[in-house]
Write a protein that binds this DNA or RNA. Structure first.
Length: 279
DNA sequence: CAGATTTGACCGTG
DNA sequence: CACGGTCAAATCTG
């Protein structure tokens, strides 16, 4: 992991440096009361930089010590003992019964580059799509490709902008993950924005080894992710986020929750923070 | 041809 | 009964 650590450290430094520079720029912008759009843009970029840095740190912590995550995520709940029976009866009776409700909600590492070739560590296969009432975009349903072969029951949903043209997922949430035997609704990683520049894939693909990642499959998934990165530049409006996503996230259970930059003793210029309030 | 995607139907829940 | 999640046949793709 040393190689990864060194590389990620550069990312963190780069992001934090960029955030500082952008903050300075914003400071200058605010003085003569320049355009609101420009200020908003800069704020977004600043937040993006800090989020990216924190995301990398969080991902690193998770990869280095996943057990810590499990511990933080809380107790497990036994899966329904009817599980296998349900599957069998479902096939015969074509009647679905409710599986035991246990879930893990994970905000995927958007924009850290981690999702580039590896996404979130899973190979997703789309199994359905629905137009959701009141939603601008249809919601797509994905499950782990290895559901059958490795018993991976991870699933996720995402709402996307005009799937036919290019996928621009507004959110992506892992809802279930049997392999972790979790029964929690927890965010492992804090939210983060996209990197302003595409990440180099090779660095991560060589270093991270998430479960169930098969380099021979899911080309489409990853190519779409990259497509999204290219086309989607933090123009996300609030309405584009699902209810789940928009719920206030508890950072306290984050593996690196104490790294919440807003509370870190970083030498933030109080005036800068006041400036943020301005928006 | 195997695996992925699409899409209408089915089903559970509130 | 409306809505959202899932199934599964049809279709597509490499």
């Amino acid at each position: 992991m040393e190689k990864v650590g060194a590389w990620d450290t550069k990312i963190v430094i780069s992001e934090l440096t960029q955030g500082r520079d952008l903050a300075n720029e914003l400071k200058n912008q605010l003085q003569p009361a320049k355009s609101r759009e420009a200020c908003g843009y800069l704020v977004e970029k600043i937040l993006s930089s800090y989020n990216n840095a924190l995301s990398v740190l969080n991902c690193m912590a998770f990869l280095e010590n996943p057990s810590q995550i499990n511990g933080l995520l809380g107790s497990t709940s036994p899966r329904s003992s009817e599980g296998s029976d349900l599957i069998d009866s479902k096939r015969v009776l074509k009647k679905r019964k409710k599986l035991a409700k246990w879930s893990e909600q994970v905000r995927v590492c958007w924009g850290t580059g981690l999702e580039g070739p590896l996404d979130d560590g899973y190979n997703w296969r789309k199994y359905g799509q629905k137009n959701i009432l009141g939603a601008k975009f249809p919601r797509a349903y994905y499950r782990c490709t290895h559901q059958n072969t490795q018993g991976c029951l991870a699933i996720k949903q995402k709402e996307e902008e005009d799937i036919q043209r290019h996928e621009a997922p507004q959110n992506m949430i892992i809802l279930k993950n049997e392999t972790q035997e979790l029964d929690i609704k927890e965010e492992i990683f804090p939210s983060f924005e996209l990197f302003s520049e595409p990440m180099k894939e090779s660095n991560f693909s060589a270093s991270y080894s998430p479960p169930f990642f098969s380099p021979t499959t899911s080309k489409s998934y990853f190519s779409r992710m990259n497509d999204f990165e290219i086309h989607h530049n933090f123009q996300t409006s609030e309405s584009d986020f699902s209810e789940i996503i928009s719920n206030p996230a508890s950072v306290t259970n984050s593996p690196l929750g104490d790294l919440d930059f807003s509370t870190d003793p970083v030498d933030f210029d109080p005036k800068f923070l006041d400036s943020i309030e301005y928006f």
